[in-house]
Write a protein that binds this DNA or RNA. Structure first.
Lengths: 232, 232
DNA sequence: CCTGTTAGTTACATAATGCAACTAACAAAA
DNA sequence: TTTTGTTAGTTGCATTATGTAACTAACAGG
């Protein structure tokens, strides 16, 4: 019976099954990652990606586990959550052979700051110190993914909050892509994407100058990326 | 000690850890997947994606496991192998909570046919019957991935073999994308990609007409995708 | 040496993109 | 009240990218 064979393998050398989350935000025009202080060994009290074991009893799948862990470690459910990649192997965890299914999440920075969950720190992705496990590699993969997707999708909209001006959204795109964009081209592309609607009568006054029109995601795109035929 | 806690969880309900592979080829201008007859329960003797348990003792990581399983089930090591996505949960496998880290691989169809490994069948991805586990979903995800990547990368080159003509390569792209392409635009894009070099003096004669120049991947791109700034 | 067929190129029309300069709307200073 | 500085948002045009049709090239076979 193969079931028995599998149980034997599992008992001889169980594979550690976890979920980690790269929660990204934009702060001061820079792409930042949210780190959580570990409460257990290994690497207790060090900052690392929020993560935890898969609970086969409670979690129906990995997304369930990711949502549960995010709630636990950050107190919020980000508007965007997607599977990034799985990191696995014998060398990445001192406890033994491990699998980490990694998700990446985007959220408005203000939501994290106002939730003020204990044990969290924000760090710019291009100024990270050495992190436990292979978390530096994981973050690098997340940054690469967000760069690619920002080129041809509405992804960075999830970093801008409920309502936002086009200049603010452009800053989000620029922080994701790591380069400045042409204002006219950017606005044309947002028009082409067609995921935004104006918040009528609402403007953002941010100094001694013309106020900016506020926009929000159309409800049909709250849970769905839109792709461009040709990138930005 | 958290190590003990994890061992307890693993023994109470061990999570089944496997690797599956979506091996794609082009046959008769159609995108096809390679299926392997299962030799064990569950679903013994049914066709399914080639896959197997992770061997924590032998495999250093999941890529190792994918290569080992591919060698076992198909007898070859494809020129392109990339992690696709992880499928996990309580419902996908009758044995219990399972994780399958899925890779997708591309290879020239002739290599599979000439290897003639036992137990393999080729099936067009748009004419699949109901497969075991969630393998239909997995293949759908692989097709979506190859479609996306073919739009702006050299990915389909790995389907064309060692040397190939541009008309043949265009067929590969068209099969991946599911649409016909403009000849002039396609050749311009291949020029822009810059991953090909002519095989001097070598042409492909395929009937009563002008023979086609043969090309191959430049050696520096044998193991590395090249991306276009703007897609095809 | 004509014919049919596919390979590969050229010239040009059309569409997408980038840039510079413009107007609009505000606060604060004069 | 007017002026000034600053950012929001638009317009027109030059440049670049893309798609199309029509061309030439090179072969096999009759």
């Amino acid at each position: 019976m193969p079931q028995v064979a599998q149980l034997n393998i599992a008992m001889l050398e169980p594979i550690i099954s976890t979920v980690d989350i790269v929660l990204l935000i934009i702060q001061e025009d820079r792409l930042c990652v949210t780190l959580s202080k570990r409460d257990k060994e290994p690497y207790a009290n060090q900052e690392a990606l929020p993560g935890g074991y898969i609970h086969a009893q409670d979690d129906r799948d990995c997304l369930d586990a990711a949502v549960r862990i995010l709630q636990q470690k950050t107190g919020l459910l980000p508007p965007y959550l997607e599977q990034l990649k799985t990191f696995a192997g014998a060398a990445r965890d001192p406890r033994g052979w491990s699998i980490s299914v990694v998700y990446f999440a985007l959220v408005d920075a203000d939501l994290i700051l106002s939730a003020n969950h204990p044990g969290l720190t924000i760090c710019a992705v291009d100024a990270l110190r050495r992190l436990p496990f292979d978390h530096n590699d994981i973050i690098a993969a997340a940054v690469e993914r967000i760069r690619n997707k920002s080129q041809y999708s509405s992804l960075p909209c999830y970093l801008a909050g409920e309502t936002f001006s086009l200049p603010r959204l452009q800053k989000m795109y620029e922080a994701c892509l790591g380069e400045t964009l042409n204002k006219v081209s950017f606005r044309r592309k947002m028009e082409e994407l067609g995921v935004l609607e104006t918040v009528e009568g609402q403007t953002e006054t941010a100094g001694a100058h013309r106020p900016a029109q506020l926009y929000r995601l159309k409800s049909e795109f709250k849970n769905q990326l839109k792709l461009l035929v040709r990138g930005l």
